[in-house]
Amino acid sequence: MNLLEVKDLRKTFTLHLRGGLQLAVLRNISFSVAAGECVALVGPSGAGKSTLLRTIYGNYRAESGSVTVMHDGELVDLTRVPPQQLLVIRRHSIAYVSQFLRVIPRVSTRAIVANVLKDQGVRSADADARAEAILLTLKIPLRFHDLPPATFSGGEQQRVNLARALVNDHPVLLLDEPTASLDAENAAVVLSLIQEAKRAGRAIVSTFHDPDMTARVADRQIPITSLTENDR
């Protein structure tokens, strides 16, 4: 069963501050991801892998094409739903981990992760307990949970970001370089969590800077190539 289907996705940026310069980034992207499957986007730096993930998530607006996601037992095209519906789908069905952690300053790490669950209606104590558990799995020690992540290392912030996506059970997971700033030991933890998510029947789209990582968790690879003048 496909949890995510991308069809003929197309994205061009128009830079009005550069005299209306058109930047074509995505053309004719089509693929699908089944439950329990992890696909890796591969291609040179700047080819548009991150842009594709963001366009699937709806962070960037698709120019044309469709992104269909399993939400509440139905396939819904994210490029067509009203904004309020997109927000509900993100809260319950599709998660995205960017390379950057963007949170309210001075909020504790535990609260940042638990708030994801609280927004879904999970009781406060349960949310805190689940947040702590996933943070510990990701090797963020308990004594850090009360601290805001601003002073954490890049790798620690990355894992807090991952914890926010992995703490709940969204059927579709989009991971942008989830192991980029991690050492080998922590990267292994993340890979095992991805394996676990696959076993739980979630559909994962990810990018990895390291071909070895790709080989270890990805079931398939989807090549993303830089567009040439002809493609535009």
């Binding site: 940026f13 963001r54 962070n59 960037y60 607006r61 904004p83 997109l86 927000l87």
Partner: peptide
């Protein structure tokens, strides 16, 4: 108008 991160990022 749009979803906040859409409007601010794209």
């Amino acid at each position: 108008t749009g979803v906040t991160d859409q409007v601010l990022d794209d």
